[in-house]
Amino acid sequence: MQSIIYLSSFLLSGETVGNPNIYPYNVFADKEERLLIFGPITILYGNNASGKSTLLNIIANKLQIEGKEYATSNKYGITPYFTKFASECGYTLGEDEDGRQIGRLPGRSRYIKSEDILYEIKKIQQEQILNDGYVYEHIRRGMHKEQTEQLKNSDRMKQQMEYLKFAQEKYSNGETTLQLLDDYVESDALYLLDEPEVSLSPSNQTLLAEKINKMSRFMGCQFIISTHSPFMMGTLNAKIYNLDSKELKETKWTELENVRYFYDFFERHKKEFE
């Protein structure tokens, strides 16, 4: 299957406001370039406060993707600046396999935040919430009310609940995260992932990146991912935007500050590994 580009580009608002401290205008005020062109997998890299999570949420709000969050700047009055900024942004959709422009994003598209994953892990510890979450996920995917009633009393659900409770006891948070992302991601959709590597060991971060590569190539999914993990960036077949730069330029992962820090650190301790 050929990788599909659902979201081709996104243009950040170039408008200004009187107060330079108003969020999210202040986050991108120094950017000399505001256009991002996306590939099948695109990484938004940046240190803390670089705006990578904010940018994902702006995209999610502009496109009205499930999981979007509203942000406010109430201390500066009643003007909904976040919504205003998002409305001033622009975007273009991609093309389907026949070269025709896509009219709208797939309904399965989703914005998944690191706190969503951590919250789901916590939910697994509570049996009733686990049951409700399992049923809700089937409703979200289109199961009718009559079918959900049958599901609640089925041996299939009982077996699945036992499996999930067993998995919670057996597996670490990191391994549970990998399983949850498997459950979340369906074929043929756009996914915005905010630091999905949270709670994952380096080896599991690499496994996650390999999974995403396969989902992009074989499941027709497009991913836009915020991360500063060298293990993710070094494994993903992605174009990388450095949000720490004013030019918002595409960069090789080996040139990024966070990655260079790891490299220099291990170089200083090289003899200890010999």
Rank of each mutant, 00 (worst) to 15 (best):
S226Q: 03
S172K: 09
S201Y: 12
M215I: 00
K170Y: 02
M161A: 04
L190D: 08
S154D: 07
E186K: 14
M233F: 01
L256C: 03
G234E: 00
M157D: 03
K214M: 06
T227M: 12
E195A: 11
L200H: 03
A189N: 04
K214R: 15
K249E: 15
E137V: 06
S199M: 05
M233T: 06
Q222P: 11
N173G: 00
E149G: 07
L164D: 04
L193W: 03
I240K: 05
N173H: 03
Q147G: 06
E137W: 05
I224C: 05
R260G: 03
Q150P: 02
H138E: 14
Q222N: 09
T227D: 02
M215A: 14
S187H: 08
L190Q: 11
V185Q: 06
Q147C: 05
P202R: 10
A209H: 07
R156D: 08
S245P: 06
L181C: 01
I212W: 07
S216F: 04
I139D: 00
A238G: 08
I240G: 06
K152E: 11
T148G: 00
H144M: 09
K211C: 01
E186G: 08
N204A: 03
F223N: 04
V185R: 12
L248T: 12
Y241P: 06
Q159E: 11
V259R: 04
L178K: 07
I224W: 09
Y191H: 08
S187Y: 01
Q205L: 07
Q179Y: 08
K249R: 08
S216A: 15
A238N: 06
R217T: 10
